[in-house]
Design a protein around this nucleic acid. Sequence first.
DNA 1: GATCAAGGCCAG
DNA 2: CTGGCCTTGATC
Length: 452
Amino acid sequence: MNFPCEVDLEEQCPVCGDKVSGYHYGVLTCESCKGFFKRTVQNNKTYVCVENQQCKIDTSKRKRCPFCRFQKCLNVGMRLEAVRADRMRGGRNKFGPMYKHNRALKQQKKALIQARRLRIESNQKEVTFTSNIHSIAILHNTKLNPNQLPSLSLSQPCNSPAVIQHQITSPSNWAMRLENCSNSADLASFAEAIVGLHHTSSRSISTQSPRIPQLEIEFRHCDPHELQLQKKIFSCLQQEQACRHREANTFSSVCVMADQLLCSIVEWARTSIFFKELKVSDQMRLLHSCWSELLVLEIISRQVLYGIDGSLLLITGQQGELSYVASHAGSALVSLNQRGTELVEKLRMLKVDHQEFACIRFLILFAPDVKELEEHHFVESVQQQVEGALLKYTLASSSQSCNRFTCLQLYLSELRSLSILAEDYLYYKHLSGEVPCNNLLNEMLHAKCCWT
DNA sequence: GATCAAGGCCAG
DNA sequence: CTGGCCTTGATC
């Protein structure tokens, strides 16, 4: 499904498609859906769908099924907690900064699309963008180029991992560091800095130290980024469960978690060293190509570093029985589960550490074989540098070093094929309408049919 | 003072 | 019950 360039998607209410009147309860919606949502929450209304709870909601049909309309309101992200219990009028709520941030993103996106259009008009070569303008718009709902909008960098707290990462080293001395990495300590610090956003806590865990999973879990619990993500996921899960009064849907909960994980991955990427130097178009191409690999890596690395045999450690810190997953899943999921478990075991045997996972993350992100990269050479050189650093690191830190690097490469290709399986599975679910709308996961899957 | 996202009002 | 318009008030 492609959208013509002329259509301004942002002006359409995500619930019914009517004209947007502003941010209401966390989402840009029309006046009528705002009112509907408010009345429903304030008056504690419960609706019943006379159909199969999948009614289409648009301007002409939105009055027909309030159940599905409210359902859609929740699905697109309208917040129950934004409706005030005390009915106090005026003022701002806690979402104020988020609205501001989103508005900045929106403006940036518009500017980007406009710039793209101009370039397309002047250069007919860029056919990809004319046909995929929707995908670009989608990605920019959650991803941004910090270089283009100075105000955005201000919205990051000064103690945010991204800022800390920037303080560790600047791009100018980075290349030099890579060249001069001559001992394991240097390499460790290199990899540690690469770890950046995702694992600030890893700085406190030495690679040489004995593995004490429980303690490491505790470390992660103390990680502000991890805590923030967990809190956000819990709130999304609660919201998701609130709209499913009767039965808990495990798959939608998994989607919520995957989506939030994906958001954090995109956030990590866009503030990462090297990646932030890239043109936005290349950033998008790379992310569109590797999001599922990064997602699978994130899940796998969590199991390797903190998980327990036979159970699945979720981002929320909860453990799930793998045998339960196996017995309740379809054949596609069983195979994924099986292969994932095998890969986790192999990586555990190899005792892959944080630094190595961080390098692998970069190797996945900087894939020079992605089509139509404008800065192909830069991407290639980053990949080579990271590969070189990983090789040196494995040589310096391990006695069984000869095979270690080769093993890691081998497991990386296994991870790649696993991610293709996972992506196909999710894509199938997406086509059958089971992936909740209006989240990044859904949009990535949607973009799959536009970009590939 | 301007902005804008809350709640309120009321004709349809 | 709906939805367009109005009032309110914290924040910038």
